[in-house]
């Protein structure tokens, strides 16, 4: 058990004992070596199952809208939150999904989530059956092989340029010596793609999304995708075809869903990690966050009292992209 885990259990146990929260959402050990999974703790004696490691890949804010009945009853929910989870919770609060006082944020100083898919590919075509952590490396074992991997080489793309590893808003913070990434510049993640010719970019985009099987795991794993009725499910009017043999429908699904996240995405990378066909959705949403920063100097989920960037208007907002007389 590491220091962070110990502290999490301590805080969680106390909160439940004092009946300050109805439920704590955290992580437990999964059934696969490279996975920790969301868990729901309601009794103080259950806190022993809470864990923390670099495989806690889900954004737990996604579960809050499922607990409408708790929120409506005025209950409080505790969330074990990484930097990105906390920012998603703030977005929720800004958008009136939950009230600030109904969420107890147990902040974790996150050193970045490891990219399960990239680690699995190290073993490709084989399978990783065992993994252990040691300082800044992980040891993976499989059928007839053993590899030591440096954690920093296998961070999720989104975590490399994360600018808020430590939750910006929290009720209790688990102490940890995490340094914010120097020169965390999201622009770097899209530079290569952006430097290509438009047709080449369109080709890459199309190739990526043409693998889409419309399982909507990206949408459902996303804490900002909480619409009661998603535009893809609307039947009156039906905005989008439901087939997979139309490239355009697949492109439109990805464009519209991601654009709905403009100024709302915290770049947690949950969508890319959830995708069973390994579509690089981060490549799309990264651009939106870069533009929110560039045009409006805005970052999502920082200040509870602020409004999401596209919900507010100011006379000196950027006019980029609008028709200009020459």
């Amino acid at each position: 058990m590491n220091k962070i885990e110990k502290k999490i259990r301590e805080i969680a146990g106390k909160l439940l004992k004092d009946k300050k929260v109805k439920l704590i959402i955290g992580f437990e050990k999964g059934t696969l070596p490279l996975k920790a999974r969301p868990t729901f703790v309601r009794k103080p004696e259950e806190v022993e199952k809470l864990i923390w490691n670099p495989f806690c890949e889900n954004n737990l804010a996604v579960y809050i809208p499922f607990y409408r009945r708790y929120l409506d009853n005025g209950e409080t929910i505790g969330v074990i939150a990484k930097g990105c989870d906390a920012r998603s919770l703030i977005l929720h609060i800004q958008e009136n999904i939950e009230k600030r006082e109904q969420i107890f944020i147990i902040g974790i100083p996150c050193e970045g989530i490891l990219d399960r898919k990239r680690i699995e590919k190290e073993a490709f075509p084989g399978e990783i059956t065992e993994v252990s952590e040691k300082d800044d490396t992980i040891l993976v074992k499989g059928n007839g092989f053993e590899k030591t991997l440096k954690k920093k080489d296998f961070l999720c793309e989104d975590c490399i340029v994360c600018s808020h590893r430590k939750p910006v808003v929290y009720d209790e913070l688990v102490e940890g010596d995490v340094k914010e990434t120097e020169a965390a510049d999201r622009q770097n993640q899209i530079k290569e793609f952006e430097s290509k010719e438009p047709d080449e970019r369109w080709k890459i985009f199309t190739e990526e999304v043409s693998r889409c099987i419309r399982c909507y795991a990206c949408r459902n794993a996303c804490p900002a995708c909480y619409c009661k009725e998603c535009f893809v499910d609307c039947s009156k009017p039906q905005w989008l075809g439901t087939t997979v043999d139309s490239e355009t429908d697949l492109q439109l699904f990805q464009i519209i869903r991601t654009f709905h996240l403009a100024g709302r995405c915290v770049n947690c990378g949950s969508c890319s990690r959830a995708c069973p066909m390994d579509i690089n959705i981060s490549l799309l949403v990264n651009k939106l966050s870069v533009d929110a920063k560039r045009l409006f100097d805005y970052e999502t989920g920082i200040d509870v009292n602020e409004k999401p960037v596209l919900n507010k208007y100011s006379e000196d907002d950027s006019n980029e992209g609008f028709f200009e007389e020459h």
Binding site: F259, G263, A292, F322, F323
Partner: peptide
């Protein structure tokens, strides 16, 4: 933002336009 986004994905410049009017 939408215009910038579509062009980022590779839509031709000038295909999509918006104006305040």
């Amino acid at each position: 933002m939408l215009k910038s986004y579509l062009e980022y994905l590779g839509l031709e410049k000038g295909r999509f336009q918006c104006a305040w009017l």
